[in-house]
Design a protein around this nucleic acid. Structure first.
Lengths: 218, 218
DNA sequence: TAGGAAAATGAACGGCGATTCATTTGTCTC
DNA sequence: GAGACAAATGAATCGCCGTTCATTTTCCTA
């Protein structure tokens, strides 16, 4: 199978509708499909989910999906970007509100990452499992929304370096990936197992602490 | 699709052959198939690889694959376990040879993880991408070989704690996952991009350093 | 309220690809 | 070298599922 080419904009497919105040119905259906797809993909994974299952999950007819998305692959990517954008927005929003130095900021970031995603188990499952799948074709089409996520983390690190709180012998690009990897793996475990709310706090503290100060005794 | 049930042992399928010194041909073909599958999966991913492609990659007929593996899923799992076992063995072997305290050991571990896997690009791609796929069904069948990998890391941490070098307020189970996640994500980036040999050294140093001492200035 | 266009429907199609199995090839024994 | 058994082959099968499109429904406008 070939991955989709992005010659036509996914975001605005079928803009042919009247422009007035009635975008409502249309966008809402698109949203319903994305929501249904998330639930379905989380349950069985992309390749084991039938389009007809997504449709019934979304409460629309099979064919309707093809009015909003080019094909199943396109739906996967659209869903991924949609959710990633949501995460990025909320992450940036919350980060702005955080007072204090780098330590607080990183702690806040880790906490947010966990909370945002665990807020919705399906999202957690989808992100942790399908992201890799899509990383595979980052080669051909570099996932911009995931790139944006990493950028946020990277900027955070660079700020810390600029303010002198952080060592500056570290490549922020590599560090941001390492941090994401650590969070993501722990998140995967939380997603698959039964995580109680207090576990989130414990893990947040533990991870931000070790990232800041390391495993060694000081 | 349902994931395979493991009622019949995958390892020893078709033991009906004579027991003498002629296991040779048989095992060798199994190996050829596993090798071919690795190449194929690395190139296109599990779901986009046709069984016939694996067969031609391995230089056997399509049907032959079914003499050694129950089905395509079984082949995936078998391959995964085979390679994971190889990694675990070599990792343990190398770790035993390492002198010094925890710092040296962790550094060695990180280095080994990178080198072992990058020694074979296909393996790197396969592990980083397909492991998640299989983590998905850890729910139904807990991947023992990956568990063993984590155990090695976990023991390393616990040793460090016992000897007093490491903080003991850290859960070694969670830490081992976090470390694996960080390594794996950085490895993914290395796999997809073009990594020069010296990059491996840089990243090894950077990662073991940050894991030991954290991002903060001391 | 008629007419027409956009949106939605879901039954049917068509291609694909995992798996099977009748046949061939190889190997060992007497 | 013939018989018997194991191993390998690959063409044919068959069920599945992504996608299409003829038809129906909805919704607007005059």
């Amino acid at each position: 199978m070939d991955w989709p080419d992005f010659e036509d904009s996914r975001e605005t497919k079928r803009c042919s509708m009247a422009q007035g105040g009635k975008q409502r119905g249309n966008s809402e259906k698109r949203r319903r499909i994305l929501d249904g797809a998330l639930r379905a993909f989380a349950k069985k994974g992309f390749y084991n989910t039938k389009v007809s299952e997504i449709a019934s999950e979304a409460g629309v007819a099979d064919g309707t999906i093809y009015l909003y998305f080019k094909n199943k692959d396109d739906l996967l990517i659209s869903l991924f970007e949609d959710r990633m954008e949501w995460i990025n927005n909320r992450l940036e929003q919350e980060l702005e509100c955080l007072e204090g130095g780098f330590e607080e900021k990183l702690h806040g970031f880790v906490r947010m990452h966990f909370l945002l995603v665990l807020e919705n188990r399906d999202l957690a499952e989808f992100i942790t499992v399908e992201l890799r799948q899509s990383a595979k074709f980052v080669k051909e089409y570099s996932n911009p929304k995931f790139g944006a996520y990493l950028k946020i983390l990277q900027s955070l690190i660079e700020e810390g370096q600029a303010s002198g709180e952080l060592r500056d012998d570290l490549d922020s690009r590599i560090m941001s990936r390492a941090i994401f990897g650590a969070l993501d793996e722990v998140l995967l475990q939380m997603t698959l197992g039964k995580t109680k709310p207090e576990d989130v706090e414990v893990r947040t503290r533990m991870l931000s602490d070790i990232l800041l100060h390391g495993l060694c005794k000081r």
